[in-house]
Simulated scan of single mutants.
Amino acid sequence: MSGTPPAGTITLAGKTVSRLGLGTMRLTGPGTWGDPPDRAQALDVLRQAVHTHGITHIDTAHAYGPHTVERLIKDALHPYPEDLLIATKVGLEAWPAPYKWTPNGDPAYLRNSVEGSLCRLGVERLELCYLHRIDPRFPLAEQVGTLKSLQSEGKIGHIGLSKVSTADYQEASKDVAVAAVQNVLNIHDRYDPVQELCRDEGIPYVPYRPLDAGSAARDGALATALAWLLQLGPHIAPIPGTSNPQHLADIVRAATDGGAP
């Protein structure tokens, strides 16, 4: 692996990784469904992120494609560098035509999703596995309890939460040690009380949509948007996404210029 970690490092799921991660939802096809229109370019983005730019935190999900991106990650990067953290998410079911996501917290579905992610990524353990969405049809304790059981079996290393409120976090943390929280936060959507809670608890906060689905870049505020996030504290680890190698290079340069401690 080459390159200096953009914007410094953070301890996430027991590993020291780059504070700037790579979100991978945009590597799927049109409408975030199916294979990418240019598979070779998608593989190139993943390889450049890790081997050229020094990004050691890749974020993905069972639902991206669905399954497509986890397979791309394996094809691009396996066998994985020792210092690479691949985080994935389960608990969101993808439906085509029209594309939509539906929370599914059925314990059997969560278990099957973890087993599938293990196979697609080619690993024996998911080092960081988020509950992608809370399903209101099932008690939260049952959903995180399923992940905790899989953790006890050695199939999950650390458990995270995604798109949660402070009340959700507090309820889940009664049953599991929450390793990270992933919520929306960006220069256009600036307040999330969970970010402050994570800061106070010393837990990594992983903003998704850190560039507001690209609108910050279109506004010419790429460096400003990333610098604003990173200055919130050392617990912040944004995961901007792209399917374009040049855009990836622009993101890394902006984060390096504006976020290094």
Results as ranks from 00 to 15, higher is better:
7 A>N: 05
9 T>M: 04
11 T>F: 02
13 A>P: 12
22 L>D: 02
28 T>E: 05
30 P>Q: 07
30 P>K: 07
36 P>N: 07
36 P>R: 09
50 V>I: 05
58 I>L: 08
62 H>V: 00
64 Y>N: 04
66 P>Y: 03
70 E>M: 04
78 H>D: 07
78 H>F: 13
78 H>Y: 14
84 L>R: 12
86 I>T: 06
89 K>Q: 08
89 K>W: 11
90 V>M: 09
97 A>N: 13
99 Y>R: 13
99 Y>E: 05
103 P>M: 08
106 D>L: 05
106 D>Y: 01
112 N>H: 13
113 S>E: 04
116 G>F: 02
123 V>H: 09
125 R>A: 10
128 L>R: 00
129 C>H: 03
130 Y>C: 05
131 L>K: 10
132 H>Q: 10
133 R>C: 10
136 P>Q: 06
138 F>W: 15
144 V>H: 08
148 K>H: 13
148 K>C: 00
150 L>R: 01
153 E>Q: 14
160 G>Y: 11
162 S>L: 07
166 T>E: 15
174 K>Q: 15
174 K>Y: 02
181 V>I: 12
183 N>Q: 09
188 H>S: 03
194 V>H: 05
201 E>I: 03
203 I>P: 00
206 V>M: 14
211 L>D: 06
214 G>Y: 07
215 S>F: 10
215 S>L: 10
219 D>W: 01
219 D>L: 12
221 A>K: 15
224 T>D: 15
225 A>D: 07
230 L>T: 04
230 L>Q: 01
234 P>W: 01
237 A>E: 04
241 G>F: 10
243 S>N: 14
254 A>F: 08
258 G>A: 14
